[in-house]
């Protein structure tokens, strides 16, 4: 499940990059609608946000972007609450209505905890969108129950404390958090710090149903942008990392101990 900031570094190239992800075997694509204050993001995605905003991205352009995409993969919009709140005439509802219209199937909002999400939950129910919540390594007990009652689609398992960003190694928190979630019957996608096929394999082996990778892919875009590489060359590298991640995830699934038959 790859993540890219829509419009990074520009509208046309970004369309090709997202299509490359689909060609590389993505099962769901998370598309970031950039917000000027991305408090949950590390430097890689912060820079992507800057590039995309400088390229003229706005919520309306974002919806045009989604409509222009030629992919056959479910799309999830990841953005911050103020943009959802300000769009259109009816706070929250207008945004979700428009998202549904262009074919978005779910939303993730990093600065919206379950406590403040009633309005968005309502709108998502009305227009048939999934509302994905993030579960952090610090989430436990009653909080976890409250979140799991409200979540739909999948749950975004934050693998480590902190902000987004590619890391060398996996967090020890991942297995603990996945174990806490075992009893809940919702697909679990793990993100934060995953950058290689081997990471993907380990996470899936530990019980995840999917892996979310953003910064590692965005680094490819950032490098290509700096060195002025052709869009096609960058798209090819993106597709190849997507393939590696997908193969890793499949491999992880095969490594998983088979449930005993009774």
């Amino acid at each position: 499940m790859p993540y890219l900031a829509a419009g990074d570094p520009d509208f046309e190239s970004s369309l090709e990059y997202v299509e490359a992800l689909a060609a590389g075997g993505a099962d769901v694509i998370e598309l970031g609608l950039p917000f000027s204050e991305p408090i949950a993001e590390g430097p890689t995605i912060q820079q992507a946000v800057v590039r995309s905003l400088e390229g003229g991205m706005t919520p309306e352009r974002f919806f045009e972007f989604v409509a222009a995409l030629d992919v056959d993969v479910p799309l999830v919009c990841m953005t911050y609450y103020n943009l959802i709140y300000q769009y259109g005439d009816e706070p929250v509802r207008s945004f979700v209505e428009r998202a549904a219209e262009v074919g978005i199937e779910g939303v993730v909002v990093p600065d919206l905890p379950a406590e403040e999400a009633d309005l968005l939950r309502e709108a998502c129910d009305e227009f048939g969108l999934d509302l994905i919540f993030i579960v952090a390594p610090t989430t436990a007990g009653d909080r976890l129950d409250r979140i799991m009652e409200r979540v739909s689609g999948y749950v975004y398992v934050q693998a480590r404390l902190g902000v987004t960003g590619a890391r060398e190694s996996l967090s020890d928190h991942t297995e603990e958090t996945l174990a806490r979630l075992e009893e809940y019957d919702v697909p679990k996608a793990v993100g934060f710090g995953i950058s290689t096929g081997e990471h993907a394999a380990s996470v899936v082996e530990a019980g995840a149903d999917g892996v979310i990778v953003g910064s590692a892919l965005i680094e490819i875009i950032a490098e290509g942008h700096e060195t002025d590489d052709s869009t096609a060359a960058v798209a090819e590298r993106i597709e190849s990392l997507a393939r590696e991640l997908k193969a890793g995830a499949i491999e992880g699934g095969q490594r998983r101990p088979r449930p005993e038959r009774t």
């Binding site: 990093p110 905890p113 403040e116 993030i134 979140i147």
Partner: peptide, 14 residues
């Protein structure tokens, strides 16, 4: 007012 922060911070805010 309210509490619009990432989930990771919510337990600390509680």
């Amino acid at each position: 007012g309210g509490q619009y922060v990432p989930e990771a911070l919510m337990p600390a805010i509680e």
